[in-house]
């Protein structure tokens, strides 16, 4: 039992480390190489993977932890980032109960959809946030959204492969099989 808990925590810790690495790569490495060309949102495949392979409770906890880890990399309010990430994660879970196939194309599709959903949630959320210095997003850069929605799915397969490898390493591969009933749905 102790070992199982340890492995679970280790799994989250390694996922968090991967998230940090990818977030840094997106914000810094990409900028060094491609300048200000829109970067793929590399954290979204991780959120999508967690949403697909974990129970809702775990998804909520992990997503919130991840949002806190990512928050220093943006001027976006933490709360809004958490809401957007949570919205994406839970939407992916609900989507999975309706449509699912076990292939790389699925995760690519979900990643691409997550990018659009994240931006829409952010735009919607920006009108609801009432903070002294915060202004709503009235003129979104749609071209950036499109480029990101195309680039993120391309980056998703290796990330998913890495996460599955970590899952296998920490004995988490059964999580996928046990989560279907959590929403009362089936594949």
């Amino acid at each position: 039992m102790m070992r199982e808990k340890f492995l679970r925590l280790l799994n989250i810790a390694i996922f968090a480390l991967v998230l940090l690495l990818l977030t840094s790569a997106q914000t810094s490495l990409w900028m060094q190489i491609f300048g200000y060309f829109p970067a793929p949102l590399l954290w979204l495949p991780i959120i999508a993977y967690v949403a697909i392979n974990r129970t809702p409770l775990e998804t909520i906890i992990i997503t919130q932890i991840f949002s806190l880890i990512m928050a220093p990399a943006t001027v976006m309010p933490e709360g809004l980032l958490m809401i957007c990430n949570l919205g994406v994660a839970l939407s992916v879970q609900v989507f999975k109960t309706r449509i699912y196939w076990n292939a790389a194309t699925y995760i690519m599709m979900v990643s691409g959809g997550s990018v659009v959903l994240f931006h829409l949630l952010h735009m919607l959320g920006s009108f609801m946030v009432r903070m002294p210095d915060y202004q709503p997003l009235t003129s979104p850069s749609l071209s950036d959204w499109i480029v990101q929605a195309m680039l993120t799915p391309l980056a998703a397969p290796p990330i998913i492969w890495l996460l599955s490898f970590i899952d296998r390493l920490t004995g988490r591969e059964m999580a996928v099989e046990n989560m279907e009933d959590s929403w009362g749905g089936s594949r």
Binding site: Q26, T27, S28, P38, A39, M76, L81, H122
Partner: peptide, 8 residues
Amino acid sequence: ARDLNPDH
């Protein structure tokens, strides 16, 4: 580095 979210 630049912002994580391109809308900011």
